[in-house]
Amino acid sequence: MTTPSELYQGVILDHNRAPRNFRPMPEATGHGEGYNPLCGDQLSVWLRQDGEQITDVSFQGSGCAISKAAASLMTTVVKGKTRAEASAIFDSYHRMVTGRGGPADDLPPKLAIFAGVREFPARVKCATLAWHALKAAMDEGGGAPGR
């Protein structure tokens, strides 16, 4: 049995209260939108790429603690990574939150706090919304919904 405090760990609450890289990015090279039709939440993700490398990433929007913390932690994790590395992290993270295998070796440890989300299928979308928007931003397909 999960308790509220197990799902809402301190790090998640911290990032919810004080999200990192929470700002628009006028000089962005890519932009993606995530929209959750279930709750009406939406967020924007911006990034700057130098060749294959993501040199800066930011987000803004409204959302629940899970989606905001997931977006915030995502920005801290993918900054400095290549597109391929970021995609690989998302795949691994996605497997974890959907309960299809535990956290893989290549998953940055700080993302493991979202493992509890697998017990809440309705919240998987919250945990992955920013990542889908990031993908859209990397594909420079701004406006693609985060489904």
Partner: peptide, 9 residues
């Protein structure tokens, strides 16, 4: 507290 988080708790 976002309504979704209230709902989950």
């Amino acid at each position: 507290i976002h309504p979704h988080d209230v709902g989950t708790v």
